[in-house]
């Protein structure tokens, strides 16, 4: 019994260390040190990321159709092959995202070098939740969504930063490979901007 408990505790510890993902530093600025103006500047950089094709192509609305857009795609168009992520947002209703966006092992670094191939990460590929619709949305719309617990997965700004630390699909946006343009800044800079925006009170331009 004791051995079983120890084994399960060890498994839990391993799981926690694995879920830490590609670690970034999550160090928010001191409380009260960020002006609203500085927070809005951070937001404008956050929106550059959120509206970038590497992020927004899969942050689509209730039609559940991922997009192909950005410099490496030419004309903006729906994902080819009549793909629809369905209400499941993982394609369970027709073709699973993971049929083509296969799940790779964590230690395989150069899995996405081939142009036009389906990107893959060490997580099951999926669309973002429908509440987080970003594609074609304005800075004000995305900002208000991201600070609304009812539409952001009930997350504080610290939770958002930790989500960015853990989610390997998000990490892919900064190293997409295959000739795709990476999201602007870096994962660490983006997390820093989230923390600055958060400590500054998560302001939006319409406040």
């Amino acid at each position: 019994m004791k051995r079983a408990l120890l084994a399960s505790a060890f498994t839990l510890m391993s799981a926690l260390s694995v879920s830490a993902g590609e670690t970034v530093d999550i160090v928010p600025p001191a409380e009260g040190s960020v002006t609203t103006e500085a927070a809005l500047e951070a937001w404008s950089r956050i929106y550059e990321v959120a509206s970038h094709p590497r992020c927004s192509n899969c942050h689509v609305g209730e039609d559940n159709v991922p997009m192909w857009s950005g410099p490496s795609y030419g004309k903006t168009r729906p994902h080819g092959m009549n793909i629809n992520g369905g209400e499941s947002r993982i394609g369970a209703e027709a073709v699973l995202c993971s049929t083509c966006h296969t799940t790779k092992s964590e230690d395989w670094e150069n899995a996405n070098t081939t142009p036009h191939a389906a990107p893959r990460v060490a997580m099951d590929w999926q669309l973002a939740p429908v509440e987080a619709e970003w594609f074609g949305k304005s800075s004000v719309e995305v900002c208000n969504q991201l600070r609304d617990p009812d539409r952001n997965g009930d997350r504080t700004f610290m939770d958002i930063a930790e989500h960015l630390d853990h989610d390997l699909i998000l990490h892919w946006a900064w190293k997409p490979g295959g000739g795709r343009e990476a999201a602007p800044y870096s994962l660490q800079e983006h997390v820093n901007d989230i923390l600055t925006w958060g400590v500054g009170g998560m302001p939006c331009e319409n406040d």
Binding site: L96, T99, H101, T102, H116
Partner: peptide
């Protein structure tokens, strides 16, 4: 060879997967 055509589809535990990917 890049999951655009489906010719290489097999099943893994009953689910379709592109074996080139």
């Amino acid at each position: 060879g890049v999951a655009q055509c489906g010719a290489c589809t097999v099943h893994m535990d009953g689910l379709a997967v592109r074996s080139c990917q």
